[in-house]
Computed example of a mutant assay.
Amino acid sequence: MMIALIALCLLVQLSGCSNTRTVYVKVPAVPLPVSLTAETPQPAIPDSMTWGESLDLNVSLLSALGQCNRDKADIREAEKQRASQ
Rank of each mutant, 00 (worst) to 15 (best):
G66R: 13
I6G: 04
Q13F: 09
C9K: 08
Q13N: 11
E53Q: 14
T37Q: 00
R21A: 00
V25H: 05
V12S: 06
L5P: 04
L14Y: 08
A4S: 11
S60H: 06
V12Q: 02
P33M: 02
S48I: 09
P31W: 01
L57G: 02
L8A: 12
V12G: 12
T40E: 07
A38I: 03
L14N: 15
R21T: 05
T22D: 08
L8P: 02
L55E: 06
M49Q: 04
L10V: 14
S54N: 11
R76M: 14
P31E: 02
I3R: 11
N69S: 06
W51K: 12
V23N: 01
A4H: 10
L61I: 05
Y24W: 11
Q42M: 15
Q42P: 05
T37R: 00
Q81H: 12
P33S: 09
I6V: 07
M1G: 10
S35G: 04
V59Y: 09
L57V: 02
R82M: 14
A78R: 00
T40R: 05
Q42G: 10
T20H: 07
K26Y: 12
I3D: 15
K26W: 11
L61T: 00
G16A: 14
P46N: 00
D74C: 03
E53N: 04
E39P: 00
L5I: 14
A64L: 04
L10Q: 03
I75E: 01
T40V: 15
L8V: 11
N58W: 09
E39Y: 09
V30R: 07
S35K: 05
M49F: 06
M1D: 11
A29N: 15
A7C: 08
Q13P: 05
R82F: 15
A4D: 10
A29M: 09
E77L: 14
L65W: 08
L8R: 12
I75P: 00
K80M: 11
S84D: 13
E77K: 07
L8H: 07
K72Q: 04
L8K: 06
P28V: 04
S35D: 07
L36R: 01
I45R: 08
R82I: 08
A83S: 03
T37P: 01
Q85D: 13
N19T: 09
L61P: 00
T40C: 06
V23W: 02
Q67R: 08
W51F: 14
V59G: 05
A83Q: 15
Q81G: 05
L65G: 06
S35W: 01
T37N: 01
L14Q: 13
C9I: 08
L62K: 10
A38F: 03
A4C: 03
E77T: 12
I6H: 05
T37F: 01
L62T: 03
E39D: 13
L62R: 07
N19C: 06
I45D: 11
G52L: 14
L14S: 08
C17D: 13
D47T: 08
T50L: 02
L62M: 11
M2D: 13
Q42C: 04
M2Q: 12
D47G: 12
L36K: 01
R70P: 05
V34E: 07
Q81V: 04
I75S: 00
C17R: 15
R76L: 15
S18K: 06
A29V: 15
T22G: 05
D74G: 03
A73P: 03
P33Q: 04
P41W: 01
W51G: 15
